[in-house]
Design a protein around this nucleic acid. Structure first.
Lengths: 113, 113
DNA sequence: GCAACTGACAACCATTTGGTTGCACGTGGA
DNA sequence: TCCACGTGCAACCAAATGGTTGTCAGTTGC
């Protein structure tokens, strides 16, 4: 089976969560999700940090695969990469479902005694 | 409507993502999800850092509301708090859905021209 | 062509973070 | 009762992080 070792996928998931785990970055993603593809300058206008700080955050998210960029003339346009969001979602679902199963087992053991 | 200002909820979501955004912590959550409620010592036996480091991570996750602990004799037993996982999930879903809408709008604009 | 705009890169700084060791305290079993 | 075990707290440290300012290079428009 291809999902034999969930650990490996989850290990890869940590950077995605980390990328979402900063308030400024989360705000950038929110803005991107509402406004669609946007340039660094546009994004900078919507948060209260410098252009350079925004660029750093975008790079972090790009490395996590959360966003991608294309050049349009002199400005780079950023957009969300939904596949990594789905990956994070799957990860959470896996944890939740396994947790439910674990509690069921626990309950069964208690009843058995 | 009660969901008027998603920004506020999303601001609160950042710590949850941050709590999941560390490999050791993610591993702890994975273990908890598979094994059910576990003591600090049991958790320590399943990662390769010291007990104190594990305790720190658990505290971080507790403050994010991801896990909770109860005392059972001399050891504290930890378990997952599913509500915060759901919160994170809702957050991701919101981003995804808004992103889809944004792309639809963009597509409509392009077609209109 | 030149000034204004946009972005990349580098240096630097303060704070946070992930980890360690050491110590003290409470609990439980022999 | 006493010793081993499990936990919490504090001090400490190196590395990463989030932010800044400054400088340089490529685009755009007047």
């Amino acid at each position: 089976m291809s999902t034999k070792r969930p650990e490996l996928r989850l290990k890869a998931s940590a950077p995605i969560f980390a990328a979402l785990g900063d308030e400024t970055r989360l705000r950038l993603v929110i803005f991107l999700s509402a406004a669609g593809p946007s340039s660094t300058a546009t994004l900078t206008a919507n948060v209260d940090v410098t252009r350079q700080a925004v660029a750093k955050h975008l790079r972090v998210m790009k490395e996590a695969g959360l966003v991608s960029s294309v050049y349009q003339g002199r400005d780079s346009v950023w957009q969300i990469e939904p596949s990594q969001l789905e990956e994070a979602q799957r990860c959470i679902e896996l944890i939740s479902s396994r947790w439910d199963q674990a509690l069921d087992r626990l309950r069964a053991m208690v009843e058995q005694e």
